[in-house]
Design a protein around this nucleic acid. Structure first.
Length: 486
RNA sequence: GGCGCUAUCGUCUAGGGGUUAGGACGGAAGAUUCUCAAUCUUCAAACCCGGGUUCGAUUCCCGGUAGCGCUACCA
């Protein structure tokens, strides 16, 4: 029975790297028909925050990935201590009465392995000092007298081996009797019968310690699969301090990413279906996922370090994938999602109107939020000020713009506002004026949308309706006479 | 410093003892077009370095270099 877990520690918002770890676990579980466990690793009381926990749940909820069981480490402390105690009773751990190290241990003079004197302390003296109330940390007694190799086969990185001579006597219990990460994690993994531990590569070398714990506790070790890390363009690890909001999942959500697109993007970082597919649905990902497809080198999230544009915070491929997913959505569904964005921004608009707008913006936006800038002229009543010079068509002048708008005003008054009729009417008008179609359309476009780039003109006018169109053309004519831009 | 991991276009990657080293994003050019977008076509762009092994290495082995990780009573 496959059982995997995602074990975030609530000491910060949901990190993109964590989200990917969750995702790979989830994909593996769903592919194998296994169980997904969410375990909150909250043994570091000092750094835990409720806000962080919320951020994690918010992020996961947005991604729409579910889990089957949920635990909190802080509610399982007894289990951790019992396992630590059992290891101690077997003589495989010892009490270390050395006060906790505060500053940096000088790493220049070789590796630290254990505190001299403590490892060899007699049981009697150890018991006596403990009974006297002297605080201690419980350390694992790494078998270094008879040096040996700890081995395992990582499902991504292959054969791994490390000599016990290179493993320090790590702590199991802190002097306040709280379990350390290593202890709590292993005790829970054993107790929850986790079959596969899929986690970041930063834990690869910790695995040897964990193997030691499992062995000492007398339980079979699970399988391990380590994931390459997600890093910044300069190769450094992603951190909030250095890289800001790019590392937070909620940033993607708030910018208008589709969760399915974000998931797709994350999957492609360090994993490949090996058949050149890029754009994949959640279902396709589940079907294609396997640990063999995971790469071993760290993957760069390609954002621009000092962002000049808002979009610089995102990997161009993420943007492209999002655009692809937006276009793959049925219009009604896209409309529903855009409606939420538009209403959130304070606009009142009917679902019917929004559906028409959706059809026009769907291949023009990469992020849901871009609807606010791309379709603003549909949403607002009064057009924001624009430069009257923009009304002037290619190879034309202000006079031509004026003639175009006046003619358009006349001709549109009697037109039926359908794509076909508008096209016929305006093309005819251009011919009458003896100008090119483009020269006819451009002033109208600017008058009606406030800018030079927009969806096709006839569809735009159709959606806008006769009243708004005429009013804006009127305004455009005025703007030519007083070209102040106001 | 010690130990471990990694190394293919700018980025994500496929591949693998003999290939024109493939795809995608991004970039450039062009087609289409009422603008923008979408779409289509084309182009530029990579096997870290040095030794082996071999008829032949980008691929296998060793060394170097670089990057990353661990080296806490953080996780």
């Amino acid at each position: 029975m496959v059982r995997v877990r995602f074990a975030p520690s609530p000491t910060g918002f949901l990190h993109v790297g964590s989200a990917r770890t969750f995702l790979f676990n989830w994909l593996f579980a769903r592919r194998q028909g296994g169980t997904m466990v969410l375990r909150v690793d909250d043994t570091d009381v000092e750094r835990n925050t409720a806000a962080s926990l919320n951020s994690i749940f918010d992020g996961l909820r947005w991604l729409g990935l579910s889990w089957d069981e949920e635990y909190k480490q802080s509610e399982r402390l007894r289990l951790h201590r019992e396992m630590a105690e059992a290891i101690f009773q077997k003589g495989l751990a010892y009490r270390d009465f050395t006060p906790a190290q505060t500053g940096e241990r000088s790493s220049a003079q070789g590796p630290w392995l254990f505190n001299a004197g403590m490892r060899e302390l007699s049981r009697e003296e150890s018991d006596r000092r403990a009974a006297a109330g002297e605080p201690f940390a419980l350390r694992f007694r790494v078998p270094r007298e008879t040096e040996r190799e700890i081995r395992f086969t990582d499902m991504v990185y292959g054969e791994q081996a490390k000599s016990t001579a290179d493993i320090e006597d790590f702590a199991l219990l802190r002097s306040d009797s709280m379990p350390t990460y290593h202890m709590a994690s292993c005790a829970d993994d054993a107790d929850l019968r986790i079959s596969h531990i899929i986690r970041g590569q930063d834990h690869l070398t910790n695995t040897f310690k964990h193997l030691l714990i499992f062995e000492a506790a007398g339980v079979a070790a699970p399988n391990f699969a380590h994931l390459p890390l997600l890093v910044a363009p300069d190769g450094s690890k992603l951190s909030k301090r250095r890289h800001g909001p790019v590392v937070s999942v909620t940033t993607y959500r708030d910018a208008g990413f589709l969760p399915e697109a974000f998931i797709n993007f994350l999957c492609l970082l360090g994993w490949s279906p090996k058949d050149n597919r890029e754009m994949m649905s959640r279902q396709e990902l589940v079907e294609a996922f396997s640990l063999e497809g995971i790469n071993r080198a760290n993957a760069v999230i390609n954002f621009k370090e000092p962002p000049n544009q808002p979009e610089d915070t995102f990997d161009p491929k993420a943007l492209w994938l999002n655009a692809e997913h937006i276009r793959a959505l049925p219009v009604e569904e896209l409309c529903r999602r855009l409606l939420a964005v538009v209403r959130q921004a304070g606009y009142k608009i009917s679902p019917e109107k929004m559906l028409e707008i959706t059809r026009l913006v769907r291949e023009r936006i990469r992020l849901l939020n871009e609807v606010l800038s791309v379709a603003d002229f549909f949403l607002c009543q009064k057009l924001p000020a624009y430069d009257a010079a923009e009304l002037v068509p290619q190879k034309g002048d202000a006079e031509m713009a004026r003639r175009v708008l006046q003619r358009a005003r006349e001709v549109l008054r009697d037109a039926e506002f359908t794509h076909e009729d508008l096209e016929r009417t305006l093309r005819a008008a251009a011919q009458e004026l003896g100008i090119k179609a483009g020269q006819m359309f451009q002033p109208i476009r600017v008058a009606v949308t406030g800018r030079k780039n927009s969806p096709p003109l006839f569809e735009t006018l159709e959606v806008l309706g006769k009243d708004v169109t005429l009013a804006r053309i009127e305004q455009g004519i005025e703007n030519i006479h007083q070209p102040t831009g106001s």
